[in-house]
Write a protein that binds this DNA or RNA. Structure first.
Lengths: 125, 125
DNA sequence: GTAGATAGGTTGATCAGCGATATATCGGTG
DNA sequence: CACCGATATATCGCTGATCAACCTATCTAC
């Protein structure tokens, strides 16, 4: 499961946001690790394949939101990314827009489903 | 504002969900009204243009999630849609998946932004 | 050596969103 | 009546993101 058309589109709207968030958290990270961070953070839900990840990073860099720097000092050839000032601003505004949108959808869903659905409050389970 | 690349992709992941939710709320509704309901429910954020709306409805119908019926009795030629049994099941499961995903992204964002950001609690504004 | 993980990358097919465009009706105004 | 804007549905074509598949290269372990 977790690879239907719905799941892909679900992820689509928050992929950039998730990657920017990971970089904000870590300060500095490289593609392969970002991939694992997103996969783990999402509970294996978001697989973020290489064919999506690298074009995405290049797109964010071209937009001036992240900065790259090659690092071979560890033996492994890695391209590290970090947020630019514009990237930090973008993360903030995109996060606000995302949260606002989530509130709207939750409102629509409120009369339809149980918002504290399966896995909602693990502490009480 | 509210029509950037980010906003479009933001919406993409929950458009089907929003339309299904509106139909679950209303029981029975037609395209033009669904369009207005979504626009209002989203605080004018989601415009849902005709070029998106109608292909979307056709797709949901082809998938057996909604059922259509023409109605000319009011003078206006309208195509009413309602959820099928499969559509109700799908709404429930998609809503659960969406809520689970939202929880993950919120977790990633928690260390980055204020989750009760602007417009969070209108009562206190 | 060779298999698998790490690390980065591209390409092509697919498909959804949406602006533009088309059609038709209804109600109101000049 | 003619005209216009709102209502109502629909399609076409462009754009752009996702991702399976594929490629290269290095490191570790067997």
């Amino acid at each position: 499961m977790a690879d239907s058309k719905f799941d892909r589109d679900l992820v689509r709207g928050s992929l950039d946001l998730m990657v920017l968030s990971v970089l904000a958290d870590d300060g500095r990270n490289y593609g392969y690790e970002i991939q694992r961070r997103v996969r783990e953070a999402s509970g294996e839900r978001v697989k973020l394949p290489a064919g999506t990840l690298y074009p995405l990073l290049h797109r964010l860099e071209a937009a001036g939101l992240i900065l790259s720097q090659w690092d071979d000092s560890t033996g492994r050839r890695r391209k590290f990314y970090k947020l630019s000032a514009a990237g930090r601003r973008r993360l903030k505004s995109d996060a606000d827009a995302w949260l606002a949108h989530v509130r709207c959808v939750r409102l629509l869903l409120s009369s339809v489903v149980d918002l504290d659905g399966p896995g909602g409050e693990p502490a009480s389970a």
